[in-house]
Design a protein around this nucleic acid. Structure first.
Lengths: 192, 192
DNA sequence: CGGCTAAGGCTATTAGCCTTAGCTTTATGG
DNA sequence: CCATAAAGCTAAGGCTAATAGCCTTAGCCG
């Protein structure tokens, strides 16, 4: 029994590879173990919470990856240009890794790690919103709106909910315009 | 072994009751069967596709319910008023039945029945958009944007992705305003 | 009224999964 | 060089979905 030298990160790597290949339906400890070259129970040495924790770790990883892409897209841009780039990067990630994106909502309740990752993602959006003079509570509301649009479109397009023949890219462009227009006329509470 | 007189509809009823009580995680043929007062394999007489088909039927039912609520909300209103009412009704449904809403994306690929139900839901939105002078392809793009916003916000709020203390209702109001503003200035292709 | 058929139950079984318990081996540090 | 902790293993228990095959009920038709 040669020692494989597994780490929790590597377990998640294998799980992601499996999800990419066969979808979240196929995510099972047995198949992850097979990919890692290890017996199923051995996984518990690294992912003590079993399948539920693995799903949690996957959500954290995916959120981090997504935050990275958004941050990359935002750098060097501002205003409508930045918002557009961020939304396109979001959709590009979801399109390129549909199964990973689908795995996102399969996590249990948000915990500390996931919150940290999500906070970083939100931070990118909040930073971009400063270009519109938004901060404080209104920036939070605006960031939630951005996430709703990005996630809603990604989720629906991935699951095949948009069945008609109209071009999805055009829809996405319209959606971005709607968002930037809304951000320009966002309520700006009087400072005290 | 008294005959229970089950129908596919009643199986879905039991499944929904179970989901409402214990979440989609708890949806298993065994527990549905127990609730229906029947042995597990007997369910296959009514839901021949097993668990996957049950999930499909649930998605169809939930989509129909949602379409009903949206239609109710839209009747007698037009323009911003109608859009606002429809979005509020959407969110109200998701909030009141969070587990049902979560069950929605767990369905397999869209089939004929689900498409029919979704078409009715989209029809309500398209009808409302006529108040903005939108039809044809642009109405499709606009309807997709509406769905993205509604679904994204519902999905994220239900899963607890919005963790900060800012009021969710305020966010929703802002989101609605963003949408109605965008609809007013939507591109209107020249008619030929 | 008698019997046939089909539908709707059942039990038994198989296959696969998650999880826990306890043993064994490897690697490492003193 | 040995002790110990980490990382692997096998075994076993309990759950699930799904299939196969049997039995009984209900209803219809002659």
């Amino acid at each position: 029994m040669p020692r494989v030298g597994l780490t929790p990160e590597q377990v998640v790597d294998h799980a992601l590879a499996l999800i990419d290949d066969q979808g979240t339906e196929a995510l099972t400890l047995a198949s992850v173990a097979a990919r890692a070259g290890v017996a199923t129970p051995s996984l518990y040495k690294h992912v003590s919470g079993g399948l539920a924790e693995l799903r949690r770790l996957i959500a954290v990883r995916v959120t981090e990856e997504l935050a990275d892409r958004l941050a990359e897209a935002a750098v060097g841009r501002s205003g409508d240009d930045a918002v557009t780039a961020v939304l396109r990067a979001y959709q590009a990630y979801a399109t390129r890794h549909p199964h990973r994106y689908t795995a996102l909502p399969q996590a249990p309740q948000p915990d500390e790690d996931l919150t940290r990752a999500a906070t970083r993602l939100v931070g990118v959006i909040i930073a971009v919103l400063r270009g519109y003079g938004l901060d404080g509570s209104e920036a939070i509301h605006a960031a939630r709106t951005v996430r709703s649009l990005a996630h809603g479109f990604a989720s629906l397009s991935i699951t095949g909910a948009f069945q008609l023949t109209e071009d999805l890219t055009t829809t996405h462009d319209r959606l971005i315009t709607t968002l930037t227009t809304g951000l320009h006329s966002w309520p700006r509470p009087a400072k005290d």
